[in-house]
Design a protein around this nucleic acid. Structure first.
Length: 328
DNA sequence: TTGTGTTTTATTGCCTCC
DNA sequence: GGAGGCAATAAAACACAA
């Protein structure tokens, strides 16, 4: 016996029926069905007693020579000698019979906690020591917890996989859009060189005056236009934005916006950014870029929760799509 | 039959609650 | 301080392939 711990070996509970004890804490109203059938399958539980180490003597006394006491745990040859040897062998672990386990399982389903009265009654009904019943419940709770942890793990794994796939898709989309930006910017610069520069003040006239019609200007004038664009203040952007969105032509405001193609650190939750643009390349690109910052919000600024705003919209209302239909 | 991995029963020590 | 729960672990019982 364990040192220090005194186990309740008493038989407990007097005349209450097994079911009344079993279901004293029952929450459902119809849960007695399985146990009823279990009990009613015979005049008395055929698994009374056990070969468990602790209850061995008790069971022998309590059941006399009642062979069914051994349940399904049969010896091939149960001669008297064997039986005698069996009873005199040193105490060993005995597995509970299938019926005993089934009964305990049903009881566990009703309530996985064991009150003293219920424990005593179960022990009495099963021919086990109350301690054995307590141990069985203890181990059963441990198994249940393990199973529960496995379930939780599987659920979390599935959730992770889903989020990972979503993240990968967004990353791919982001890179595709980056490539598109590069392409469009190249076209823009080419067009700028061909068609000359313009300043923000010209933007309002852009729709009426296509760039092609602007006369060719020197390269130095092109650079000058960039400077004027860069120096454009943020308040100009907001006012220009409304104008721009009324126009189907591209407009330039604060062309240098580091957030445009900057790798988003917050998007590294799963793995490093696989962007093919290095930071230097991107900075270089951005220094040349004349694109307004509100066109390219950071990825984390885009609210994907709204189905009406796909990542392709960059968080802009759908009605602003016309802005993207640049024609060259 | 035997070696090995898994499951089940039981012990031990620590912790919490009343 | 005792009772009981839990985690860790031991050890017997069991399953199964070679």
């Amino acid at each position: 016996m364990a040192g220090g711990r005194v186990y309740n070996g008493g038989s407990g509970g007097g005349g209450s029926s097994p079911l009344s004890v079993l279901f004293q804490n029952q929450k459902g109203s119809c849960a007695s069905q399985p146990l009823d059938s279990l009990f009613l399958s015979g005049s008395s539980p055929s698994f009374l007693g056990s070969r468990s180490m602790v209850s061995f003597e008790d069971a022998r006394v309590g059941n006399g020579s009642n062979r069914p006491f051994f349940g399904s745990y049969d010896h091939e040859d149960n001669g008297d000698d064997d039986l005698d040897d069996y009873f005199h062998q040193p105490e060993k672990k005995r597995r509970l019979t299938a019926d005993q386990v089934q009964f305990l399982e049903k009881s566990f389903e009703v309530d996985n906690k064991l009150e003293p009265e219920r424990k005593s009654q179960l022990a009495k009904d099963l021919g086990l020591q109350p301690r054995q019943v307590a141990i069985w419940f203890q181990n059963r709770r441990a198994r249940w917890k393990t199973k529960q942890l496995e379930k939780d793990f599987d659920a979390l794994q599935a959730s992770y996989d889903s989020l990972k796939a979503e993240y990968d898709n967004l990353l791919k989309e982001k890179n595709e859009l980056k490539a598109e930006v590069v392409l469009l910017t190249d076209k823009l610069l080419l067009r700028e060189k061909e068609g000359g520069s313009f300043e923000l003040s010209d933007a309002n006239n852009l729709s009426q005056e296509p760039l092609q019609k602007q006369g060719s200007e020197s390269a130095c004038e092109v650079e000058a236009s960039k400077v004027s664009i860069v120096s454009c203040k943020q308040e100009d952007i907001s006012s220009a934005k409304s104008d721009i969105f009324d126009s189907d032509s591209p407009h330039y405001t604060d062309g240098v916006h580091s957030s445009l193609l900057e790798p988003d650190d917050s998007s590294h939750a799963f793995e490093p950014d696989q962007s093919d643009l290095s930071q230097d390349e991107e900075d270089n690109f951005m220094s040349k870029s004349l694109l307004p910052p509100f066109i390219f919000p950071k990825l984390e600024d885009v609210d994907y929760s709204d189905p009406s705003e796909s990542s392709c919209n960059f968080g802009f209302p759908v009605e602003d799509h016309a802005f993207w239909s640049w024609s060259y």
